[in-house]
């Protein structure tokens, strides 16, 4: 097995950063996120010993705000000046299985079923993911319940195994192998034990849940569950698998640009229609959409769940909305109660 001594991590990141934007888990004061590694970033801010970052790495492939194209108008005519699809090489270093699995969910949404999102594709095709086996889940983690193997980050090109002073380094795709060849001078070669299966404090049973939810759209339990939700966007924006965006425009004089930006099904404006009608008037309808989307609709369309059990929403909801408790309640209620 290839190995990477932890003392050589910064050298490896520097090497990678010569050819690519390298995203690493960074402590950034009040927050943490996958930020770009550069000469200006101190190694002390590298958060490889922490469980995870507050903000997920989804912004590497789906930035919160992304310029799409610029245009100029002249009288009744408009002309596209430049399409801004960004196809630079990128590397994500040290993502956990919950976050890499979410990238797979985003891939399903943006690249399959007969529609390819050119902006997502441009970013995704040049992305290499160095995943990281996760042997010590936190108290709010429940990825194993959502069909994620924390020790084998799905969608990673290379998997790192923590073995104290060094990482085991295992390429699992051709892209990962190519990266390994590039970095050979930094890597050692010896057998290291792989971490064994992790103990999860938080577990939840989702067997049969998507099918049950298929019959629960009009169930009164949604009002009960939504009562303490205040319809802010924290959960959707911290979620590694929420991908909704809006397309908007900014103009100045005869010129302007179109951009897309994250949107949230928690916001009334999300479903506001041009004629003034809003099909999701109340907060429980918006709340219901979020959970049905994650646990039923995505499953129905792509055969996978929209939640990968990272636990960020559970930790950060100011009002204690907890998807694990919600799933438990959804399982327990009688589907035929009206």
């Amino acid at each position: 097995m290839k190995t990477l001594a932890k003392t050589k991590i910064e050298a490896v990141l520097n090497q990678l950063a010569e050819k690519a934007e390298v995203y690493v888990p960074l402590k950034q004061g009040a927050i943490s996120s996958f930020g770009v590694w550069s000469a200006a970033v101190s190694g002390e801010n590298l958060a490889l010993e922490s469980l995870n970052t507050l903000m997920s790495p989804k912004s590497v492939v789906l930035p919160q705000t992304e310029k799409m194209y610029t245009f100029a108008t002249s009288g009744q005519q408009a002309e596209v000046k430049e399409v801004c699809a960004d196809s630079g090489e990128r590397v994500i270093f040290g993502a956990r299985a919950c976050d890499t699995k979410s990238l797979n969910v985003l891939d399903e949404v943006f690249l399959t079923r007969g529609y390819e999102d050119a902006f997502y594709k441009a970013r995704r095709e040049k992305l290499t993911v160095i995943g990281r086996a996760c042997a010590q889940p936190g108290p709010h983690c429940f990825c194993s319940s959502m069909g994620v193997d924390p020790l084998e980050p799905a969608g990673a090109d290379v998997i790192l195994y923590d073995a104290g002073e060094e990482f085991g380094w295992e390429p699992v795709t051709e892209r990962g192998q190519a990266l390994t060849n590039q970095l050979n001078e930094f890597l050692g070669d010896r057998e290291l034990p792989k971490p064994s299966a992790a103990e999860f404090r938080t577990r939840v049973d989702i067997e049969g849940l998507p099918e049950k939810l298929n019959r629960m759209f009009a169930h009164p339990v949604w009002e009960e569950l939504a009562a303490k939700c205040m319809n802010c966007g924290i959960c959707t924006y911290l979620c590694p698998g929420c991908y909704c965006f809006d397309i908007q425009v900014k103009t100045r004089g005869q010129e302007g640009y179109r951009f897309r930006c994250w949107d949230s099904c928690m916001y009334p404006e999300y479903t506001q229609m041009a004629g003034g009608h809003n099909p999701r008037q109340s907060k429980h309808e918006r709340f219901r959409n979020r959970f049905l989307h994650k646990l039923e609709f995505i499953h129905e369309r792509y055969g996978t769940l929209g939640c990968t059990g990272c636990g960020r929403c559970v930790v950060m909801c100011p009002n204690g909305v907890n998807i694990v408790s919600i799933i438990n309640r959804l399982r327990e209620v009688d589907v035929d109660v009206r």
Binding site: A30, I31, L51, L54, G138, V314, V315, M316, C317
Partner: peptide, 15 residues
């Protein structure tokens, strides 16, 4: 603060 306590217990880096 319940969120600050949850965050401290969670292993996520933050405030």
């Amino acid at each position: 603060d319940p969120v600050a306590h949850a965050l401290a217990a969670s292993g996520l880096d933050g405030n």
